[in-house]
Design a binder for these strands. Structure first.
Lengths: 116, 116
DNA sequence: TTATGAGGTATCCGTCCGGTAACCGGAGAA
DNA sequence: TTCTCCGGTTACCGGACGGATACCTCATAA
């Protein structure tokens, strides 16, 4: 009883599917969290560390550099003492927020249900 | 001698953040793709491999096992010869689709813009 | 007889992540 | 003066994760 191969139901994903395209920006540990907490005003490195308690300084610093390279965040060094650094979303970064919002919404529902 | 800050003895309250809560289900390489291609009808292992050409068998089988453990997909062995296995989304899995849809939508916009 | 296909597992190896520690230059404390 | 702290970053190390390839079982097809 041979199985017939069912055709792919989905539009040709090939030369870089939209999911992959967007995940290239959202991928990497803690990336959605970083973008999420940058929504709204700019935020300093140590503020982000407080926002995301379980991220290590190394990973946060790496993530911010990656996101800067990809054009998702901007980095501005403030002439304070000691110098502090402010990060903010670019227009591209703000476009990613709705996707993270959708994830957060689902997370809220999951939590509410687990409480019951 | 000042009092040293005591380290919290219990692991930090993990599921505080809705984003983390939901990312626990979506995290891991290729996870959004797998859920995306399972939306709609059930799909077999080799069909998923064709849907997601760049995933390796090891990672796909690992992802499917993880998702089954988390209650996102079901696994059904069909009594064919050779036996085939069908995977499908659970109700929980279907709840995750809107978030992936949002990511896909943004990916479409990014691609369209890049073409220009 | 060999090949093929389904649904994986075994193995190797490179990259990523997390934790710790150190760094730097200036400001305040001892 | 010397100590220490502070914000941001980097170097080092060990472990987990992901990619590539090979292999396995069973049964039909060429």
């Amino acid at each position: 009883m041979p199985l017939k191969r069912r055709k792919s139901r989905v539009p040709p994903p090939m030369p870089a599917c939209p999911l992959t395209e967007c995940m290239a920006l959202l991928g990497g540990a803690w990336t959605p969290n970083v973008i999420w907490y940058l929504n709204g005003e700019a935020r300093r490195f140590s503020e982000l560390r407080a926002d995301i308690p379980r991220i290590s300084a190394k990973v946060l610093s790496g993530r911010l550099r990656d996101l800067e390279d990809k054009g998702v965040v901007t980095r501005k060094v403030m002439a304070t003492s000691p110098p502090s650094v402010e990060y903010a979303l670019t227009a591209l970064g703000r476009e990613l927020v709705p996707a993270i919002q959708a994830i957060v919404d689902i997370g809220h529902r999951l939590k509410r249900r687990k409480a019951a």
